[in-house]
């Protein structure tokens, strides 16, 4: 299947979903004008991808958001719900919530999301300064 690549803008994150490398990344800021429209292709790609995914294939999902609005939080919850269900079905999916060193707020957001999921592997990853 084709990779999903959406360029980063001032209001929306960069999306790089690579089906061959099994690496899914959302990076940047997320407060698009129309959140559901922006994320619609993300969800349809994800549903197709999971349907075809082998159980023993390890998948890494990297989320690195410096700012997101409330609608994006809801989208993230829906997104994690799909991953959680897949994990429940036996897929090996790990979410990496990446936050900047000393960014306690971002760490707290990650902790809030992590609490909700049981099957899904949810890692809080501190980004080392380059």
């Amino acid at each position: 299947m084709e990779n999903l690549i959406i360029e980063e803008t001032k209001f929306s994150p960069s999306i790089v979903f690579d089906g061959e490398k099994h690496s899914l990344s959302i990076t940047g800021k997320s407060y698009p004008e129309n959140t559901s429209v922006f994320y619609a292709p993300v969800f349809s790609w994800l549903e197709d991808y999971i349907e075809k995914l082998d159980d023993n294939q390890e998948v890494g999902v990297n989320i690195e958001l410096i700012y997101f609005n409330s609608s994006s939080s809801k989208v993230l919850l829906d997104f994690f719900d799909i991953l959680d269900e897949a994990a429940e079905d036996g897929k090996s999916i790990a979410v990496n919530w990446i936050y900047e060193e000393d960014d306690e707020d971002s760490l707290e957001f990650g902790e809030e999301f992590k609490e909700d999921y049981e099957s899904l592997t949810f890692n809080l990853v501190e980004k080392k300064p380059e």
Binding site: S70, S73, L77, E108, E112, E115
Partner: peptide, 12 residues
């Protein structure tokens, strides 16, 4: 579950 998480995230 969503409402709880969203409220906390939003407060934060």
């Amino acid at each position: 579950r969503h409402a709880t998480t969203l409220t906390r995230v939003s407060d934060n």
